[in-house]
Simulated assay, not measured.
Amino acid sequence: MNKKTITRRHLLGAAAAAVVLPATARAQMALQPAEVEDDFTRRNVSSFAAHDWRDHFSDLGKGTILADTVSRALHYWSGDGSDYRIYPTSVPKTEELTKRGYTEIVRKKVGPDWTPTASQRERFPDWKYMPPGPDNPLGTHAMYLGWPAYVIHGTHDTRKIGRRSSDGCIGLFNSSIAELFEITPIGTQVRLI
Rank of each mutant, 00 (worst) to 15 (best):
S119E: 15
T155F: 14
D83M: 10
Y102N: 02
L66S: 03
A23D: 03
H153F: 12
T64W: 09
W53R: 11
T115E: 12
F40H: 12
V36Q: 08
T103G: 01
D157Q: 10
S165E: 14
S175F: 12
L74I: 09
F124P: 00
S82Y: 07
N174Q: 12
S175H: 13
A34I: 13
V36P: 00
K62Q: 08
I152S: 03
L60E: 01
T24I: 10
Y102T: 02
E37T: 05
R159V: 13
T69P: 06
R159E: 15
L12T: 11
T184S: 05
G81H: 08
T69M: 04
D39M: 10
H156Q: 14
E122N: 14
P148I: 07
H141E: 07
S71F: 01
V45C: 11
R42P: 04
F124I: 12
G133A: 06
L138K: 06
D83H: 10
Q32H: 11
P137R: 06
H156R: 13
D135I: 03
L21K: 05
S71M: 03
V151P: 01
T188Y: 07
P125Y: 05
S58I: 10
Y144L: 04
R100M: 11
E179L: 08
K108A: 05
F40D: 07
P131R: 04
R163V: 08
W147L: 03
F124R: 08
G168T: 15
L11S: 13
P125K: 13
H156F: 15
F181Y: 15
P33M: 11
P92V: 15
E179A: 14
H75K: 05
A73R: 09
S47V: 13
V110M: 13
E104Q: 09
R85E: 09
